[in-house]
């Protein structure tokens, strides 16, 4: 009776997909709970999900978790918007004018491969341990990736579209706004969604190294006292924020690009 669910590259009803997603997650949590309760693994290594949820509740009600989450989210978005605001125009210019691409691409490619954690000491020397360091590190991790992705999208705008616009009288600026940007829209939003995810990775690095607030700080502090449930609760919160943001951006994508 389930054979029709296993058709190679076949389709599955949306309700089935949703229920399977929830059921699979539930199974994993149940297995985790069972493993933790059986006592095979010491609780300081693997606390049960119920204890993680209890820890999460305490953190929410007594330890100001909401504020830490807000601080972290603000850091991520400030750095991300800054990176996007710079990467989008620069990436577009790089592919629109060869001379600009030729000037910037080697440099950006070099910096892009530098691991962000390796630049932490330098950024502390430059900016101290305040907010600037965190924003700088996050910006560093996203800007150089994003700028090349944007440049790539711009390069892929079909020449035919550009030429159709020019033959109906569009000037360069109009080709850019009415054709190139419209064409790039869907991939641009996708790339932003993906780089926003990377931002959270770098955030934790930044907050572990130098912070007295934020979710990374919370996780790292809990680790020092081997409060494993708190550590796990912190990680779960990041996962939830990621899930929600991702779904919201996907929804935005569907709303904006109904023609796809």
């Amino acid at each position: 009776m389930f054979s029709n669910l296993f058709v190679f590259r076949g389709r599955v009803a949306p309700m089935v997909e949703l229920s399977v997603g929830i059921a699979a997650a539930f199974l994993v949590v149940a297995a985790w709970e069972a493993a933790a309760r059986s006592g095979i693994i010491a609780p300081q290594f693997l606390p049960s999900p119920t204890r993680v949820v209890a820890a999460l509740w305490t953190m929410l009600t007594e330890q100001n978790l909401v504020w830490h989450v807000a601080v972290s989210t603000a850091r991520v978005w400030i750095a991300f918007l800054l990176a996007a605001a710079m990467a989008i125009p620069i990436g577009i210019m790089m592919s629109s004018y060869r001379i600009i691409g030729a000037a910037l691409e080697p440099m950006i490619d070099f910096i892009r491969y530098l691991p962000v954690p390796a630049l932490v000491p330098l950024s502390i020397i430059w900016f101290g341990v305040g907010e600037e360091t965190k924003v700088f590190l996050l910006w560093l991790g996203t800007f150089f990736q994003l700028v090349l992705l944007v440049a790539d999208d711009m390069r892929r705008v079909p020449q035919e579209f550009v030429e159709v616009a020019r033959t109906v009288g569009a000037n360069s600026r109009q080709v850019m706004t009415d054709v190139a940007l419209r064409w790039m829209g869907p991939t641009l939003i996708d790339n932003l969604r993906i780089t926003l995810g990377w931002c959270w990775t770098y955030l934790i690095i930044a907050e572990i190294v130098a912070a007295d607030s934020g979710i990374g700080y919370v996780i790292w502090t809990a680790r020092r006292f081997v409060k494993t449930p708190e550590v796990m609760a912190g990680v779960v919160v990041i996962g939830l924020i990621g899930l929600v943001t991702d779904q919201l951006l996907r929804l935005l994508h569907r709303r904006l690009f109904r023609y796809l």
Binding site: P158, E160, F161, E163, V164, T167, V168, G169, V179, R182, W183, G185, F257, Y259, L260
Partner: peptide
């Protein structure tokens, strides 16, 4: 200019 219009084999109409 618009006195001479192009029609290509593909990518001819804007998807958006």
């Amino acid at each position: 200019d618009r006195r001479r219009g192009m029609v290509f084999q593909s990518y001819s109409s804007f998807p958006w």
